[in-house]
Design a binder for these strands. Sequence first.
RNA 1: GGGCGUUUAGCUCAGCUGGUAGAGCGUCUCCCUUACAAGGAGAGGGUCGGGGGUUCGAAUCCCUCAACGCCCACCA
Length: 868
Amino acid sequence: MTETIENLSTTYNAREVENEIYKFWEDNEFFKADNKSKKPPYSIVIPPPNVTGILHMGHALDGTLQDILTRYKRMNGFEALWLPGCDHAGIATQNVVEKELAKENKTRHDIGREEFLKITWDWANKHKSRILGQFKTLGASFDLSRARFTLDEGCSKAVKKVFVDLYNKGLIYKGSYIVNWCPRCQSAISDIETEYETEQGHLWEISYPIKDEMGAIVIATTRPETMFGDVAVAVNPNDYKYKDLIGKTCVIPLTGREIPIIADEYVDKSFGTGALKITPAHDPNDFEVGKRHNLPFIKVIDEQGKMIARSEVHPELHGLDRYEARKRTIRMLKDHEVLVKIDDHEHNVGKCQRCNTTIEPLLSEQWFVKMEPLAKAAIEKVKDGSIQFIPKRWEKNYLMWMENIRDWCISRQLWWGHQIPAYHNNKTGEIVVALENPDPNNYTQETDVLDTWFSSGLWPFETMGWPDINSDDFKKFYPTSTLVTGFDIIFFWVARMITMGLEFTKVPPFKTVYIHGLIRDEFGQKMSKSKGNTIDPVLSIEKYGCDAVRFTLANLCTYGGQDIKLSDEKFEFGRNFANKVWNASRFVLMNLEEKELVLDSSKFTIADKWILTKLNETIKEVKDDLENFRIGEVTTVLYDFFWNCYCDWYVELSKIEKNEAVLTYVLDEFLRLLHPIMPHLTEKIWQLMPIKKDKKAIMLSDYPNYREDLVFNNEARAMETVYDAIRSIRNIRSKFNISPSIKVNVKIQGEEALYKTVESYLKRLARVENIEYINNENEVDKQAASAVVQNSKIIVPLVGLIDINEEINRQNKKLDKLNKEKASLTARINNQKFVESAPADVVQKTKDRIAEIEAEAGAISDLIKNLS
RNA sequence: GGGCGUUUAGCUCAGCUGGUAGAGCGUCUCCCUUACAAGGAGAGGGUCGGGGGUUCGAAUCCCUCAACGCCCACCA
């Protein structure tokens, strides 16, 4: 069936159009960026979504913003590349696959590393297309021919090179260290993957007898089960209570092992009993104390979170889970009457970000990146403005973290990820770090893999062909232009990209970091599957249309980057606007008669000049907002222009008298302005427009430019006066319940020349029968409602229809308001200091306004006098 | 403990460099006027969290208090 303007649907059928249009773009390969192009580059790399993930609102927002910027730059003459891809998401993906295995009662150990990786790769490949496919329903104009995966060959090559280089520079080391251990994931995790939750616990006070003496020292602990790993009791050196005990030996109850009493500044005299048991193998602070005092490390809890069967641990507890062991320990302490006191105690407990299991601080061999030397440049480049955060406040956040940076634990005891390129000599145990195994017969590769963020940290350049710095993509598109992401991954990702980018490419990986707010539910709660408060963007798109979702999300992006409280109904805002654009366009296109549509300034009416002026103000504002990442503002400005100026006035006027060239010109310009936000709708309409087109698609066309020659401020202002007049007649009609079917007559005093040119507008839009121009007050009817508009009086005679008292009342209200304003303005102008110190234009404006009020108030007074 | 954010119309929020407040939704009244009822016309509604200061002038800048939220640190 051939599509004609006449048979377009009266309500916008978003999904139908969106599928058709996206296919049109894809088939024509419009998203493909050309690395040989002469145009200046603009590039964005996607924050790679988890390969096994599904699209959530955060992606939808993030993707919408990236697409808006990409499309805007593309229309502005840039060679724009939005590079998509996925993250292998080590722990998350491995967890998913292990869960699948668990359904068959298997663990990864049952099937072995090789088989497990094979299954996981299948899983990843299967899902990779799903998440990127979902991005397509968002209208994403990314270049899928360049899609990357953090575990693909190129990324692996980059990761290896970075690891080996950092190692050779002495910036990667392997060490025995206390790390955050997740007993469920069976892996170390980094500090920022640990989240703290407040829990109600207890503070137990336990009496440790002094060796060979009568007394005892009472320590306070929240984790009594770790007492078997104690290697000292520490007190503050300035604590007089314990002065005499320092240097003596005490005995751990239940086991009888002897440990020294030491002094360390770290101990807080005022907390608990002021005496602290030191367990270096199971507490990060104790670990530091232990190192300072050269104490041994005794590990009593294993990687499963179970008590170790070793002589230091009470035999009854061997192999027990840490919590069960705690209960038993307490019981035993009670039995031995060494439990002095139990207090309720609120404390923070570390949890694994991925699975919420309580972290066990554990001593183990891990690989670390020495961050401090690397952070230097990353701090510098943000401080000197080479990299800018928007909104700016995130810079402080970033800098604070970077300036207090800790070493980064990068090894994970997982199978899914980049296996660390370190090789152990089977006989000597010597470690060689190299791109390849030096001798597979005698060397075995490290089994640990790298933290997922290690490869994501290289994302902006590993996706551009690095380490081949002569690759065309790297030369054309690196460094990237803008990074768009949420604040929740500034430390995880942004900071590391900046650090690694500077270290390995010597330039910042991007110039601008645009940080948007987080999507929350309508009550401000974080959306999560477990809470069941998520809104599925795929369903919202089905229901409201992709462009509606995009427009709404963009509208919610405030300048300050506030979090976004979202409910599904909010998308009605975007849907209604899409429908409005659709119908107004349909109306304009249906009524075109001329074949040649040429802007001819000699034929411009006052209304044409008004809409062209409004259009150009809008163009200016929209471009300024887009350049400055005020995305929400862009939607507001476009909405206001189209709905309140173009539709409510200009299109309505075109029903009386139309200039088709201007009507279509404005629509064309508006569609281009809107295209980055509502790409499908604008493309569809643009394709239907019978205008000359230099490009095959609106997405490839030029973004509008401000045109001084199409700005007519005087006429625009005059037209606003006409609208005021129409509004005041409508107001009178409404106030006095004049039925729409009844036409009224109007008398106008003043501005005769102006009103004569727009008589037909007044007649139609205000339902006026006759317009009569009068010169003096005597001609004003006694029974009439009236309004003062600028320098004219609009009088609507309403013999028999009007309640005179009500009209007098109405006018008096207006008068009151004016007088109040006048009083305050007059006070200001009489203030000598104001006249002296305020800018001249402000003073002038104030004076003008007073004059205006006086004229208007005078006119109203006349009208009232006439009525009484 | 340190840092950040929020507090504006009934609800959700805009308001960039100070010149006496805006939108959407909701409410009220009227209307199927030949693009759109996902629509049109009109209306009502706010002493911009409290207090103090700077200024001729403060929602906007500074100080302070309060409530709510977030991040970092992690005193057993």
